[in-house]
Amino acid sequence: MRVSKMLLPSALALFAAALLAVPSRAQSDEPGCRPEMAGLMLPIQRANLTHPVNLAKGEARLTFVGHATFLIETPGGIKAATDYNDYVRPPETPDIATMNKAHSTHNSRNPDPAIKQVLPGWDPTGAGAAKHEITLGDLRVRNVPTNIRSYSGSTDFDGNSMFVFEIGDLCIAHLGHLHHPLEPGHLRALGRVDVVLFPVDGSYTLDQEGMVEVLKSLQAKVMIPMHFFGGSSLNRFLARSQDLWPVERRATSTITIAKSALPARPTIIVLPGN
């Protein structure tokens, strides 16, 4: 991925200051997950996934495809892909694709026309924040807007989104290309989070210290890192957070999760990927 000039270390501090100075206009009245609620085009790479759904009621399957893309599968056979792009894709066409515009590795210029719902995390018309709340089969998906650093060096208000996936009473939040700390309005809009998928690179997205604070505020029982460009940035994050949460490293990129089987205390689960 080509590094934009606006992401150079000398500019990051200025952009971060601008982001923190102006609050995001995320919708704070969004109903959250509640306990009672049941550029250069590169060849597309596809993860090697051959498993059938075979999920019991209340379960969800997550597969780390790579970068910021996860495949989320429901017992009813609905499939969603996060930060769907033209570089790394799941082998199967998802029913729902969420996207963010921070970089071309987080969105697609040519989404598969068979996708039933393509949900950009920004409003392509520029009229304001994206607003998505859809239900397809046994999966509900909604977004919470966030700000990003624009390529011109300013703040792009509501330029990205975090997406929440609700499968029965299980709530999964994908933080996308998050660039700033979460405010109370974001937390109210997200609602209860059982599983959080979060970036840990610490430079293109929010710095690692800030990401630790985000995770503390969410209090999700399962925390799965993404967007770490190899092992060094991931290991730095794990070293920074080792006194806060236990870490489980899995040998495969797929995990099956159920609300009833969540760990007793918040746990970081590392899936193979990049």
Rank of each mutant, 00 (worst) to 15 (best):
K5H: 13
A11D: 11
A13Y: 07
L14H: 14
F15N: 12
L19R: 06
A21C: 14
P23K: 04
R25D: 13
A26H: 02
Q27G: 15
E30H: 11
P31D: 04
P31A: 05
R34C: 10
E36C: 01
M41I: 13
P43Y: 01
I44Q: 13
N48H: 11
L49F: 07
N54G: 05
A56P: 02
R61I: 00
T63H: 10
V65H: 04
G66S: 06
T69M: 05
L71R: 05
E73H: 04
E73P: 08
T74N: 09
D83I: 01
Y84L: 10
N85E: 06
D86Q: 09
Y87R: 14
V88F: 07
R89L: 06
T93P: 10
P94N: 07
A97Q: 02
A97V: 05
M99C: 09
K101Q: 11
S104E: 12
S104Q: 14
H106F: 14
R109T: 10
R109H: 15
P113E: 07
A114L: 12
Q117L: 14
Q117A: 10
P124L: 02
G126M: 03
A127Y: 05
G128Y: 02
K131G: 13
H132N: 12
G137K: 01
V141E: 08
V141D: 12
V141C: 08
R142Y: 12
S152K: 15
F157V: 11
D158I: 00
M162C: 14
F163G: 13
V164C: 11
G168W: 01
I172M: 07
A173M: 00
H174T: 03
L178A: 00
H186Y: 04
L187N: 08
R188K: 13
L190T: 07
L190V: 05
V193M: 09
D194N: 15
D194W: 00
V195G: 02
V195N: 03
P199F: 02
V200R: 01
G202T: 03
G202P: 08
S203G: 13
T205L: 07
L206N: 02
D207F: 01
M211I: 07
E213C: 06
Q219A: 14
Q219M: 11
Q219Y: 09
Q219S: 15
K221A: 15
M223S: 06
I224V: 13
I224T: 05
M226A: 09
G230K: 11
L234C: 04
L234F: 00
L238Q: 10
A239C: 09
A239W: 03
R240N: 08
S241P: 11
Q242N: 12
V247G: 04
E248F: 00
E248M: 11
A251V: 10
T256W: 05
A264I: 08
R265I: 15
T267I: 04
T267N: 05
T267G: 08
L271G: 03
P272W: 01
N274V: 12
